[in-house]
């Protein structure tokens, strides 16, 4: 005997909350992005007018405006490139780590996993701030390089795109390691032995056995890093310079500085659309992955 009322209560309470406070806000972004901007408060016209009869008052000008200006397109491309490079480095560092943790003995494995994830628990903002200290002109890295005689004067390490990549790789690395570990953990180590017995060398074993079997973990981890990094605002703001503009920064300025709400909404909604495909892929993997792992 099932209690239907109780089931409804469980399904619909969060349903209601998420439609109201998540879906409707996303719909409002779309609505404002097709509104005509004007001076005033709020700085856009209603999309439905009832003055004399019913009239729909929309425009795609905000999108045209964004997509015809290199300032916006360029920033978005910069963000995509930044996300690609960061994801690549996270994978480069994260894969060997996840692999070696997964192949450790079970006691050590749990300790190492906790050690890898614990920094993720400490404040995001403060971990970015830590890099600001390390990369200062008279910071620990420059002082070390000078003392070792590698450089003769302090390098400008901060306020450029490399500092941004550094900060992103550092803060997002655990997000890459966790799903990778989740897949590698279930991996049958005997397969590696078997492939050796069959005469494959290390490199071949890696490319023919280990890599293909960890593809789902690589995809899940890459998406967990890639998607949020495209919209990252704090790290470029703290560590970046004026050499590159990113999507997050121009969205922030379009809203708070230029007070162009329709423009900012169009930027945000374009962002959603461009990220939808990766998000859908993420969801398919998420539903499978969450059945097997805990984050």
């Amino acid at each position: 005997m099932k209690n239907r009322l109780f089931e409804k209560y469980f399904v619909f309470s969060p349903y209601f909350w998420l439609v109201l406070f998540f879906f409707i806000p996303l719909a409002i972004i779309f609505k404002i992005s097709i509104s005509i901007s004007e001076w005033g408060m709020p700085p856009y016209q209603d999309i439905f007018l009832f003055d004399d009869g019913f009239k729909i008052n929309t425009t795609f000008e905000n999108y045209v405006y964004i997509f015809s200006d290199y300032y916006y397109i360029g920033s978005f491309v910069n963000s995509l490139i930044l996300a690609l490079i960061s994801t690549f480095f996270c994978l480069l560092i994260g894969f060997p780590l996840a692999f070696y943790i997964a192949t450790s003995n079970i006691r050590l494995r749990n300790i190492l996993l906790v050690l890898v994830v614990i920094p993720f628990w400490s404040s995001f903002l403060l971990r970015v701030y830590a890099w600001k200290i390390i990369l200062q002109n008279n910071g620990i890295l420059n002082v070390t390089l000078l003392n070792l005689g590698i450089t003769s004067e302090p390098l400008q390490l901060l306020y450029n795109q490399y500092a941004v990549i550094m900060g992103i790789v550092y803060t997002y690395l655990p997000l890459m390691i966790l799903p990778l570990y989740g897949y590698l953990n279930k991996f049958d180590l005997n397969l590696i032995e078997a492939s050796k017995d069959l005469g494959l060398n290390r490199i071949k074993t890696f490319f023919k056995v280990i890599l293909p079997l960890s593809v789902p973990g690589i995809v899940a981890g890459s998406l967990l890093v890639f998607i949020p990094v495209v919209g990252e605002f704090i790290i470029p703001e703290m560590l970046g310079g004026s050499d590159r503009l990113y999507y997050g920064k121009i969205l922030w300025e379009e809203f708070f500085v230029n007070r162009n709400w329709p423009g900012a909404s169009a930027l945000a909604f374009s962002g959603i659309i461009i990220l939808v495909l990766p998000i859908v892929i993420f969801q398919i993997l998420y539903s499978r992955w969450s059945q097997k792992n805990e984050i």
Binding site: L224, I227, G271, L275
Partner: peptide, 9 residues
Amino acid sequence: TPLVLPELI
């Protein structure tokens, strides 16, 4: 979706 959607959006 809130797991991955950029915080800014």
